[in-house]
Design a protein around this nucleic acid. Structure first.
Length: 1051
RNA sequence: GGGCGAUUGGCUCAGUUGGUUAGAGCACUACCUUGACAUGGUAGGGGUCACAGGUUCGAAUCCUGUAUCGCCCACCA
């Protein structure tokens, strides 16, 4: 049975999208192989974390990549989009650990390393499948044959090789550093994984006794803290070395600020100055005395642990704050740590990894931080050493992963030296080898890198790339010398497969002072540590070194370490693959702004280091998706939206179109969403309260429904409330419009015969739509090349809806009725539709494919001046190349006259409240060329405005009762004898008149201004004159029309 | 504290190097089930472009300041 266009439904069934996707995939359309005869265009996906599911931010990110890839594919590039996922170290381990704890009440220590890692792999398999499924539903045309995972073998080799290389360059070192310790996960987390929250807290003031105070000297020194338990690790109290000068400086600065400050702030600053002045009176003598005591080397007695600690002079102490003295806890506070380094203070770690007090705290051992805090306060109070307690808002650091408070903690960490690496990445952007769009984001990138802070890469985790270092301590010099000699003659070290390093620099010398103090005794430091790094995974080799006494480093690498290698590791590095040769450097990277430093910068430096070449030529930073309250969508906030929810309800094309439409250069995307009650369709705004709720009760009908967060079987059994937003309605409506325009076209292709069309067969509207098609194609092309997604979406939307549908299709309705005109009309509209589908395909691939294939059944051979057979799939087609000869400004101007005339006729109809079924008659007074033009368009006035022309030209018979409208130099008179509502017409004309009067006045004023006429460019002045003349003409005519109307009203 | 960005009709956003009467979608009003499409059509109402100065013949657009919001970085005994 032959296919009939009459059977096309009036809705696109977007639920067939997965089938279309399967077809593409099975045909291998997404797959790319190196082909030196073609130019490659390559994108590597920002690998989503396998932590969970994707949200709209990912949908945006991947839509933008797919749009670009599909555009370039049509443009003839050999496109490769490499997909993959990220193991996301801490995030994933934390999620799985938490889940295991919830379900089995087991910690990772109960399971052991091997078992936990296995469990996480299971989780990864499950979520990776889900994520890749989501990407497919979205339409992402990734080359799935090349899917990578940052923890797979290829990536592992790349990580290993890179680490080894950096080790060989001596850019890897070990150091004791203060880290943000997550006591729940028992790992260090990076600054980026810490968030701060203001909470109500206290500020405790303690008194430390001075040992053997001399007469006139204070018996106590007062210090204050928000973390009392840390006093157990205090190793000094600091006072400023020159408190007087410091106070003077502060006062001078404040006075300077006072001069510049806006009135509102003046009072506050004045108060501060007064406080400083008061302090000089009340406290300065005491501070100077304490400073002198510090210089003398006097000591204080640290209560509770009874340890002598020095009073030191250090600029960290701020004489303008508190008591002017500050307790120093080097092992648990970043600033105190610096003081400790400067003043050569011991650093006493008081915490066990699990956050309880260790043996250094004496009788407090085993207590948790809150317990220790309480006890320390009580004990000090008993000793009468608690001075006072203040209420105060304090900012507490929390781990983003476990949501528990962070403790600053001194731990062994591996670092990467960043000087050269950071410099290379800065240079790449500064000299334009890597271009960042929008360019303002380059600043943050440069600033961050220019700090060249060393990168702490070790994580106390089990999920990740284990650091390929084996170490051993040499207690004595003899052991050390022996081992070094052995290693130097080691065959694998000689061959370069293995490198070793001795750690015995000043860092370690200093470490002697850093050694943990147990009671009063110091732990002796070994003479040296020797580290061995093995280039490749090699069990035999590892065993050999282990037999020599080396022990493998337990920590794994920061997850960004493997992410940094992504552009080349995905292409097979360190092997010299044909893919690397052909696809590297990749073309562009599309990502969000929060990881410019963490990820983008590190990829650049890693690419340069490993490949000697930048990883991508361009970086496009896309907007962030915010919720209705203007907050960033994120999993932790629970305001994320599952793209599948949107796809179910609106279709992937609508989602993609909506997202592309919003991707402008400067703005983030605000996306207010609602739940739609499946029972009564009532819309419920997503709020802070109902975020992440597995079930919601409808506010209107009271019935419960499930959401995307439903997990229990009970919740899942409820009807699902979809997430909706007007954002997606825009796309859905547009797709519907396009579908039906195509449906109309195909329904009118009966008897279609392929054939060329010669220029003289074309009607005005054909030439017009071809001219517009040419212009729009150029414009959309330009938009895609410059990441102008919103502009591309808008341009195609306007063309398809306002020009193709509202005018061209409407006009062809007439021509399709005419046997003689039909063939040309069919060929032209088919050609235009064909091109339009290709313009739209990058954004809305499913619907354009479906239409393309249907059209292929009806009109398999098509074209304008030459014919070609349409490809089976739109994906095998090419970007439309419209002949520039179709661009015709004069045709577009002529068409504009028609549009305006049509608009005027419709306006009069509407003002006069004329029923659509009633035909009106009109005459137009105009010049001959215009008359000729409008003559040919008169059938369209009838079909599109139900208005019949009864005279066009300079000499027309003006109907007695009429409504008049002036358009340019034309006057349109509509015969209203059967319809006239004189009052309405007078009303309209009066409004028009006052508008025109205002306009004329403002123009006359402008042109009367001597300096405007003499200084503005001539063409601007001429244009103003012209428009004034026109306005005056219209004014006259409107006045005349009004006079006539009043006359007839008087009758 | 430093940096970046935003502020345009009720809502969400466009607005190219300054130049006719500032646009769109949604919402709103009126009319319309017309053989592509009511997820539609036609017409309409609604904005002194955050505020104050300045530059200019001319400012939503450029400059300065203020306010509010957001993001990034640093810091916080």
């Amino acid at each position: 049975m032959a296919f009939s266009a009459q059977d096309i439904p009036n809705r696109f069934d977007f639920s067939i999208s997965p089938k279309i996707y399967e077809y593409w995939e099975s045909q291998g359309f997404f797959h790319s192989e190196p082909d030196p005869s073609r130019e490659p265009f390559t994108i590597v996906i920002p690998p989503p974390n396998v932590t969970g599911a994707l949200h709209l931010g990912h949908a945006l990110n991947n839509t933008l990549q797919d749009v670009l890839i599909r555009y370039k594919r049509l443009k003839g590039f050999n496109t490769l989009w490499i997909p993959g996922t990220d193991h996301a170290g801490i995030a994933t381990q934390a999620v799985v650990e938490r889940r295991i704890f919830e379900q089995e009440k087991k910690s990772r220590h109960d399971l052991g390393r091997e078992e936990l890692v296995k469990r996480i792999w299971d989780w990864k398999d499950q979520y990776e499948a889900r994520i890749l499924g989501q990407l497919k539903r979205l339409g992402s045309s990734c080359d799935w044959d090349r899917t990578r995972f940052t923890l797979d073998e290829t990536c592992a080799r790349a990580v290993r090789r890179t680490f080894f290389d950096l080790f060989a360059k001596k850019w890897i070192y070990k150091g004791k550093r203060l880290v943000n310790w997550d006591t729940f996960l028992q790992t260090a987390v990076s600054d980026d994984e810490v968030f701060h929250e203001t909470t109500d807290g206290n500020f405790w003031h303690f008194k430390y006794p001075v040992i053997d105070p001399k007469p006139g000297e204070p018996k106590y020194v007062t210090i204050a803290t928000t973390r009392p338990e840390t006093m157990l690790g205090d190793t000094a109290v600091a006072v400023h070395p020159d408190p007087e000068k410091a106070l003077n400086t502060i006062e001078a600065e404040l006075k300077e600020k006072l001069k510049e400050a806006p009135g509102k702030e003046k009072a506050g600053i004045q108060t501060q100055i007064e406080e400083i002045q008061a302090r000089r009176e009340s406290m300065l003598p005491q501070l100077i005395k304490l400073r002198d005591m510090a210089l003398e080397g006097r000591k204080l007695m640290l209560p509770l642990v009874d340890r002598e600690i020095p009073l030191v002079a250090d600029q960290w102490a701020k004489p303008e704050l508190g008591s002017g003295c500050v307790k120093i806890t080097p092992a648990h506070d970043p600033n105190d740590y610096e003081v400790g380094r400067r003043q050569d203070l011991p650093m006493i770690n008081i915490l066990n990894p699990d956050g309880t007090m260790n043996e250094a705290t004496g009788e407090y051992i085993g207590l948790t931080i809150p317990q220790a805090r309480k006890m320390v306060i009580e004990d000090l109070e008993k000793l009468n050493l608690l001075d006072k307690i203040e209420d105060r808002k304090i900012e507490l650091a929390y781990s983003d992963r476990s949501k528990t408070p962070i403790e600053p903690y001194l731990a062994d960490q591996w670092f990467i030296k960043m000087d050269e690496l950071a410099q290379s990445a800065m240079d790449a952007v500064k000299d334009g080898r890597v271009k960042i769009f929008p360019s303002r984001y380059a600043n943050g990138y440069i600033d961050w890198l220019s700090e060249k802070r060393d990168w702490p890469v070790s994580r106390q985790l089990w999920w990740g790339h284990q650091i390929p270092i084996w170490s051993q301590e040499c207690a004595y010099k003899e052991d050390h010398d022996k081992m070094v000699a052995k290693l130097e003659s080691d065959p694998d070290i000689k061959s370069g497969k293995v490198k070793f390093q001795v750690e015995r620099d000043e860092e370690l010398e200093a470490a002697e002072k850093i050694g943990t103090i147990q009671g009063a005794a110091r732990v002796t430091m070994p003479y040296s540590q020797i580290h061995v790094c093995i280039a490749e995974e090699d069990a035999a080799l590892a065993t050999r070194y282990e037999a020599m006494g080396f022990v493998r480093e337990e920590d794994v690498l920061d997850t960004w370490f493997s992410s940094a290698l992504w552009p080349h590791s995905t292409l097979g590095w360190p092997n010299k693959t044909p893919e690397l040769e052909y696809y590297y450097p990749t073309s562009t990277l599309i990502t969000s702004r929060d990881i410019i430093t963490l990820w983008v910068a590190r990829m650049v430096l890693a690419g340069i280091n490993n490949m000697g070449e930048i990883p991508f030529r361009e970086v496009f930073i896309h907007p962030t998706i915010l919720d209705g309250l203007g907050e960033r969508m994120s999993k932790s906030k629970g305001n994320g939206v599952d793209p599948l929810d949107v796809i179910e309800k609106f279709g992937a094309d609508s989602l993609r179109f909506g997202l592309a439409y919003l991707t402008t250069e400067t703005q983030d995307v605000r996306m207010p969403v609602q739940f739609e009650c499946p029972h009564c369709q009532f819309l419920i705004d997503q709020t802070k309260k109902n975020r992440q709720q597995p079930r919601i009760e409808c506010k209107k009908c009271g019935k419960p429904f499930s959401t995307q967060w439903a997990e229990s079987a009970e919740d899942k059994a409820l009807p699902r409330g979809a997430i909706v937003s007007e954002r997606f309605e825009l796309g859905r409506n547009f797709c519907n419009k396009l579908w039906n325009a195509a449906r109309f076209t195909m329904m009118n292709l009966e008897g279609f015969e392929p054939g060329t069309v010669s220029a003289d067969e074309l009607q005005l509207e054909d030439r017009w739509i071809l001219s517009r098609l040419y212009t729009v194609t150029q414009e959309v092309s330009r938009c895609y090349e410059s990441y102008g997604y919103a502009d591309a979406a808008r341009a195609t939307y306007d063309f398809a809806w306002d020009e193709f549908c509202s005018f061209y299709v409407e006009m062809l309705k007439e021509r399709f009725q005419d046997e003689k005109q039909r063939p040309v009309a069919q060929r032209v509209i088919t050609y235009v539709l064909d091109c339009m589908l290709r313009l739209l395909h990058p954004i809305i691939p499913f619907i354009t494919e479906e239409i393309w294939q249907t059209l292929g059944k009806i009109a398999p051979t098509r074209g304008l001046e030459s014919l070609t057979d349409a490809t089976e799939s739109i994906m095998l087609s090419t970007w439309p190349e419209i002949d520039s000869k179709w661009e015709d400004q004069s045709i577009e101007r002529q068409f504009a006259v028609f549009e305006e005339t049509l608009g005027s006729l419709r306006e009069i109809r509407s003002r006069q409240n004329i029923a659509p079924k009633d035909t009106i008659e009109f005459v137009i007074r105009c010049d001959e060329p215009t008359a000729k033009l409008l003559e040919t368009m008169s059938p369209y006035f009838l079909s599109m405005a139900n208005a019949k022309s009864s005279g066009l030209g300079q000499k027309v018979e003006v109907p007695e009762t009429n409504a008049t409208l002036t358009v340019g130099s034309m006057e349109i008179f509509v015969d209203l004898k059967d319809f006239i509502d004189v009052e309405a017409e007078i009303d309209r004309n009066e409004k028009q008149l006052s508008k025109l009067q205002q306009l004329v006045v403002s123009k006359e004023k402008k042109l009367g201004n001597e300096s405007f006429v003499s200084r503005a460019p001539a063409d601007i002045v001429a244009r103003e004159r012209e428009s004034l003349d026109q306005a005056k003409q219209e004014l006259e005519r409107t006045e005349a029309a009004l006079a006539r109307l009043r006359e007839s009203a008087a009758k």
